[in-house]
Write a protein that binds this DNA or RNA. Structure first.
Length: 600
RNA sequence: GGGGACGUAGCUCAAUUGGUUAGAGUCCCGGCCUGUCGAGCCGGUUGUUGCGGGUUCGAGUCCCGUCGUCCUCGCCA
């Protein structure tokens, strides 16, 4: 080792020891002859004293922030009144007898102290500087601890950590694939896996019983704060189990992980609610239960209200829903109306509302509340003086759900329901097996085509496919979907029926999933599993707003890497080697393929 | 593909209704300084206001286009 100690470990015990440290210069306090230098590494910070006397009159080097400095000297107890209680090492300092700059460093492109204030573009371009920050190092430590705790827990429950291919087969369903051309098979392509789904099912058929993997997955879709084109899942699968076994295991896993990483206790079991209930009461399939705001149905009352906006919505097949906002009656009209853009963005025409005062309802909707239906509405809401009620009515129930769901989210923040550090898990289950494709009307899998239909609904698979429930479940944490899984189909015949229901012909099924269908013939046990989003989990456990902050080298919203500048054009030679030709519309030219390089 | 926000010194930001020479803090450079720990004091440099066009006597400010970053809808089995 080039050093005897790290920058975080020296204490009174080491006084008079001769030590050698290597670290980044974190500050230089120059008093002319006497200099104090803070040296920093992963483990902490320590003050080094450099003076002409201590280093024997040698010329002092020019010291600058983030140079890598090697210091040899002796540990001294600091004089009284000169200790620094803010530093773990603050009772001692190192009196340098020699110093050497091992790594030069120009002035930095940004000030790391400004931390997250600096714009992301710059931070990610100079990620190596950004990641020196204590704050960032803590995040990645947390993520590392989290993944270790997961492996530890699952190892203790007989899971095997098994690998699956990264170069695999493109599948027709689901997200867009990232394609990889095959040099040895011109014109043919691998795809990067969207998930190891089928491979883990094959492990089950192979008798591996309990499989886990921390695995990278790839989906070529547009990005969000919580979505990157490549992301990491804790993937697991078990045989001879049902839903409650998976949920129970994951609850135990989360309890262990949260305890190990944050020291917090979670309450088990996690509440479970059906998809239907989640959509109705919370306006989302990933409800944030940190807030107790609840959406309620009022479509059945509109007949008695004589409010055309409401009745019109219901008449055209939609719905009227609303929620009580305790204490919202204190808000001004202007403040209430400032909520309207939230619902308009989701396609709603507007926000209807009334306040409850000591003298009864007041505000735009109040004049429709005089009759019996109005009274029932007020009663159902549980309105008390000082409360506000907001409603959305629309001909499309989907718009009502999304609008109020979004409004609920914003109100939860506004009302201070979102306390930092609170972890609120729940399960959402009984998802529909299929969604309707908006364009073709074709049923398409909500989860994936290997999800087992609910046994009670099997009779409807062909006749009323959209009413079939799935044996699927999502794990939700603080309003984020952090996991999703299902019991899988383990019978070939049922798998074929599901393929047919989603419009996959026998030929397509054979060519795309033939290997799975074949495997299902040869002794497949009942099985199921789940995949947990590691980036989102790490983000929430670290109290952050975007998964970019827990990914060392994230992509921008356009899918580019600021550090490496990927993706890049490649040379025509590289293309032809893999049997591809360039379309003449390339945005960027390949770098230095045959440039003549004239200096300007 | 649609909607929105932002882009001014290396960095973080300011600049009144469109009005003179675009400022501050920090960083950086020079000087002073032997007990600081956000060191201090004195002095100094730093600008294609993202880019291109337009309106105007005059544009950082208004308009159009474009590029980039972020948020979001669509999309994400």
């Amino acid at each position: 080792m080039l050093r005897t100690h790290t920058c975080g470990e020296l204490r009174i015990d080491q006084v008079d020891h001769e030590v050698t440290l290597i670290g980044w210069i974190n500050a230089v306090r120059d008093h002319g002859g006497l200099k104090f230098v803070d040296l920093r590494d992963r483990y902490g910070r320590i003050q080094v004293q450099i003076s002409p006397e201590s280093i024997g009159g040698d010329a002092l080097e020019t010291l600058r922030f983030d140079q890598v400095l090697k210091v040899t000297g002796s540990v001294m107890e600091r004089p009284d009144g000169m200790r620094n209680p803010k530093l773990e090492t603050g009772d001692v300092e190192v009196i340098a007898t020699s110093t050497e700059i091992l790594g030069e460093c120009p002035p930095l492109p940004f000030n790391p102290d400004s931390g997250d204030q600096v714009n992301d573009e710059l931070r990610f371009r100079y990620r190596f500087i950004d990641m020196r920050r204590e704050e960032i190092q803590r995040r990645f430590r947390l993520r590392s601890d989290m993944q270790f705790a997961m492996r530890q827990y699952l190892h203790g429950h007989d899971f095997l950590d098994l690998e699956t291919p990264m170069l695999t087969k493109s599948t027709p369903e689901g997200a867009r694939d990232f394609l990889v051309p095959s040099r040895q098979n011109p014109g043919e392509f691998y795809a990067l896996p969207q998930s190891p789904q089928i491979f883990k099912q094959i492990f089950m058929i192979s008798g591996f019983d309990r499989y886990m993997q921390v695995v990278r997955c790839f989906r070529d879709e547009d990005l969000r704060a919580d979505r990157q084109p490549e992301f990491t899942q804790l993937d697991l699968e078990m045989a001879c189990i049902d839903e409650s076994d998976i949920m129970g295991l994951v609850e135990g896993l989360m309890e262990h992980v949260v305890k190990e990483v944050t020291g917090k206790e979670v309450t088990l079991p996690f509440p479970r609610l059906s998809y239907k209930e989640a959509m109705l009461s919370y306006g989302s399939d990933s409800p944030d239960m940190r807030s107790d705001l609840r959406i309620q149905e009022f479509s059945d009352l509109v007949e008695g209200l004589e409010f055309k906006v409401f009745s019109g919505a219901v008449d055209s097949g939609g719905a009227v829903r609303g929620m009580r906002i305790p204490g919202g009656g204190q808000w001004s009209r202007k403040e209430i109306e400032s909520l309207e853009p939230i619902v308009k963005q989701q396609g709603a025409g507007g926000l209807a509302w009334f306040k409850m005062t000591d003298d009864g309802p007041a505000g735009p909707v109040s004049r429709f509340l005089a009759g019996a239906a109005g009274e029932e509405l007020i009663q159902r809401l549980g309105m008390e003086p000082g409360d506000l009620a907001c409603f959305v009515a629309d001909g499309q129930t989907r718009v009502v759900v999304n609008s109020l769901g979004q409004l609920r989210k914003e109100l939860a923040i506004k009302l201070g329901h979102i306390e930092p550090g609170v972890l609120n898990f729940c399960w959402v289950e009984e998802f529909p097996l299929f969604d309707e494709d908006e364009e073709t009307g074709q049923p398409t899998p909500c989860h994936h085509p290997f999800t087992c239909p609910h046994p009670d609904d099997l009779g409807n698979l062909e006749s009323k496919p959209l009413e079939v429930r799935a044996r699927a479940y999502d794990l939700v944490l603080n309003g984020f979907e952090v996991g999703g899984g299902s019991i899988r189909i383990h019978q070939r015949e049922l798998q074929e029926r599901v393929f047919t229901a989603i419009g996959i012909t026998a030929e397509e099924a054979e060519s795309k999933f033939g290997f799975l269908l074949e495997a299902l013939r040869f002794g497949a046990p009942p099985h199921g599993g789940i995949a947990l989003g590691m980036d989102r989990l790490a983000m929430i456990l670290a109290g952050l707003e975007t998964i970019r902050e827990v990914i060392a080298f994230p992509k921008t919203q356009r899918g580019t890497c600021q550090l490496t500048n990927a993706p890049d054009p490649v040379t025509t030679d590289q293309l032809s080697e893999v049997g591809l030709m360039k379309e003449p519309v390339a945005k960027k030219e390949p770098v230095a393929e045959e440039e003549s390089g004239e200096d300007s």
